[in-house]
């Protein structure tokens, strides 16, 4: 598998990280190097092996249907880069 600059740009766009052409060119061989090394996993015979789900055997607990949080708008908004009238705000989205 070979990652070219176009792929790097596509992946960066999926991950919402702006990258320049120069970044993409620098990253492509780096990622290729890492991914090439990772690909040795393909040689492991994993037929009839289940993917790991819980690292340490444990079951999912279910919590009671009780309201424990809320009415803390100021705390929720406190670190917001921008907000007004009790809302977070973002550049206008046209739908």
């Amino acid at each position: 598998m070979s990652v070219d600059t176009a792929t790097v740009k596509k992946v960066a766009s999926l991950a919402r990280i702006a990258i320049s052409d120069a970044d993409a060119e620098r990253l492509a061989p780096e990622l290729n190097n890492i991914l090439g090394w990772i690909e040795q996993l393909g040689e492991v015979d994993t037929a009839n092996v289940d993917p790991m789900t819980a690292v340490i055997p444990n079951t999912l607990r279910l919590r009671a249907d009780v309201i424990t949080e809320g009415q803390q708008r100021d705390a929720v908004l406190q670190n917001a880069p921008q907000g007004e009238h009790g809302f977070f705000t973002v550049p206008k989205v046209v739908e």
């Binding site: 990772i38 393909g42 492991v44 994993t46 092996v49 289940d50 993917p51 790991m52």
Partner: peptide
């Protein structure tokens, strides 16, 4: 090819 295989290897 990547993620599922890696989690299987993790099991091993």
């Amino acid at each position: 090819a990547y993620y599922t295989q890696a989690q299987k290897v993790r099991t091993l």
